[in-house]
C-alpha cells in the first residue's frame, strides 16, 4: 500500500491552471525527486502535500488521512508530513533547541523534558548536538538548514518534503545538508524533494518525476530516466541543466 496517494489533483492560481490532473503514488521508504523548469508546478505540487497550497479538485491521502477536493483534517495531515524550506524559516527568537521543541510541546502536548530529549536526539542526527543553545543568526546557512530538518523530524513525520533545500546555500555548504538527507534516505525515511541537484537525485532517489506544464511528463527510475529520456522536453531539460 502506498504511503502517499495523489489522484486527479488540480490546482488553479486565478486563471492560471498550474496542476492539471496529477496522479502519483509514493511508497514508504521511497525517495522521490521532483524536477522541472521553474513554473512547471513542481513546488506547488510539493506544497499541496501538506496543505500549504489548497487543492481545487482531486484526492490526497497520506497514511490514511485524506483531503477530498481540498476538504479534510488539515492538521492531522500536517502532523504526518514534515517540510523543509529553501529559506530555512527558523524562528529567530528561539534557540536551535527551542525551535525543535516548539511544535512537539505546543501541538502534541509533549512534556518539556521529553521534548528536550527528542530535540537532542534529532539535533544529534543532523550533527548539531553542540548547537542546542545557539540562535539562528549564530549559525551558518548549512547549520540553519540542518536545524530546520531536525525541527521537522521532531514531529516524527511519515514523509518529509524538501523544497529546494540547498538552493539558498553557498556552494561549500550544500554537501553537509545533502549528507543529512542521504543519511535519512538510508534509514528508510520517505522523502519527496524538489531539487536542482541532479546528481544527488540520481544517486539517492529511487523515483524521478519530471514536471512539465503542470503535468507529470515523464517518471521512472532516476538512473534510466537520466540515461534514456523518452521525451524531447526531458532531454532538453537535462541538456540545459548539465551545460549550466
Amino acid at each position: 500500500m502506498s504511503l502517499v496517494k495523489i489522484a486527479g489533483l488540480h490546482k488553479h492560481f486565478g486563471t492560471n491552471h498550474v496542476l492539471k490532473g496529477i496522479d502519483l503514488e509514493v511508497a514508504s521508504g521511497d525517495v522521490v525527486a521532483l524536477i522541472g523548469r521553474s513554473g512547471s508546478g513542481k513546488s506547488t505540487l510539493l506544497r499541496t502535500v501538506n496543505g500549504l497550497e489548497t487543492i481545487d479538485k482531486g484526492e490526497l491521502v497520506v497514511d490514511g488521512t485524506a483531503l477530498h477536493d481540498g476538504r479534510g483534517d488539515l492538521r492531522a495531515l500536517r502532523q504526518k508530513v514534515g517540510m523543509v524550506f529553501q529559506q530555512f524559516n527558523l524562528f529567530p527568537h528561539l534557540t536551535a533547541g527551542q525551535n525543535v521543541m516548539l511544535a512537539p510541546t505546543v501541538v502534541k502536548g509533549t512534556a518539556k523534558a521529553e521534548a528536550e530529549d527528542i530535540a537532542k536526539e534529532v539535533l544529534l542526527k543532523v550533527g548539531l548536538s553542540d548547537k542546542f543553545d545557539s540562535y539562528p543568526d549564530q549559525l551558518s546557512g548549512g547549520q540553519q538548514q540542518r536545524v530546520a530538518i531536525a525541527r521537522a523530524l521532531a514531529m516524527r513525520p511519515k514523509v518529509l518534503l524538501c523544497d529546494e533545500i540547498t538552493s539558498a546555500l553557498d556552494p561549500e555548504l550544500v554537501s553537509e545538508v545533502l549528507a543529512v538527507v542521504r543519511q535519512l534516505a538510508t534509514e528508510g525515511m520517505t522523502l519527496i524533494m524538489v531539487t536542482h541537484e541532479m546528481r544527488f537525485a540520481r544517486e539517492v532517489g529511487n523515483k524521478l518525476i519530471f514536471m512539465h506544464h503542470g503535468r507529470i511528463h515523464e517518471s521512472g527510475d532516476p538512473k534510466t530516466v537520466f540515461a534514456e529520456p523518452q521525451t524531447p522536453e526531458l532531454a532538453n531539460f537535462i541538456g540545459a541543466v548539465q551545460s549550466a
Binding site: R78, G82, F85, P92, A103, V107
Partner: peptide, 30 residues
C-alpha cells in the same frame, strides 16, 4: 513577520492562535 516563518509553523501543524503566540508576537513586539 516573514511569510516563510508562518508557513513553517503551519507545516508543523500549529494552529493560528499557537502561531500568533509562539512565532509572531515576540518578534513583532521586538
Amino acid at each position: 513577520t516573514p511569510r516563510g516563518q508562518i508557513e513553517a509553523a503551519e507545516s508543523l501543524a500549529m494552529t493560528r492562535p499557537q502561531i500568533f503566540r509562539h512565532v509572531v508576537l515576540r518578534p513583532a513586539l521586538a
